[in-house]
Amino acid sequence: MLEAINLKKAYGNMEALKGLDLTVNSGDVYCLLGANGAGKTTTINLFLNFIEPTGGTAKVCGIDVTEQPLETKKLLAYIPEQVMLYGNLTAMENLRYFAQLGGHDYAPDEYRGFLNRVGLQPDAIDQRIKTYSKGMRQKVGVAIALAKRAKVLLLDEPTSGLDPKASNEFSQLLLQLKADGAAILMATHDLFRAKETGTRIGIMNEGRLVQELSTDEVSHADVERIYLEHMHAGDQYSQKVA
C-alpha cells in the first residue's frame, strides 16, 4: 500500500505540493486527476524518491521512501507516460534485464509467459524494441511490473496518446493487477478511464488534493461535472490573486 502523510515539495518559492495526505490500499486503483502542474507527477516522483520531499513522508508498504529507497523500490513498479526501454534489445532481453534488476530471475518460458499475458504479439517478442509502437512498449512495462511481482504500481499518464483499443487493453491489464492485490496509483487526464478502471478518484488543484470520490458512488457525468467545478474554482481563485 501507499501512504502520503502531509507530503510537501517546493522548488524555491514555488510550492508544487502543499501537504498531501493520501492512502492507496491493496486492491485499490486510485486515479489522480488534475490540470498540468497540479502536482500529480510530483507526487509520483516523490514516491519513487526521484526528488526529495521538503516535508512530510511518503511510504510504500509502510517503509519510508527517503530512508530506505532501495527497499521500497523492490516493491514497486513504475510505468511512465512513455515506457522507455533499450531500443537495441528485444522485448525478451529488456524484460529479463529489468526483472533481474528487480532481483528476480525466471526461465525463458516464464518471461514469454509474462509477455503473452500482457497481450504482446508472439512474433514481436524477439524483435528489437525500437520497432515497437507506444502501446506495445506500455505492455512490456506492465510485463516488467508482473515479473517484478510489484505490490505497488505508480503510473504517470500511461494511456495518454494511446488509441482507444490499446487504452482499453491497458485498462484490462490494470484490472488484472488490481485483482492480484496490487495498490495502484495512476495520474491521468482520462476521466472516462478513471471512472471505468479506478476504485477511487482524487482531484488535485495547485498542489492540493481538493476532493476524493469513490467511483461506484458517482456517474461518468458526475465525475466530469465535479472535475470541471474544481478547475473553474481554481481559475477564479487564480484570477482573484492576480
Partner: peptide, 14 residues
Amino acid sequence: ERGTLAMILAHPIS
C-alpha cells in the same frame, strides 16, 4: 534523455 534512467532507478539500484 532516452528516458531509461527513470526506468532503471525505479528498481532497487542506486
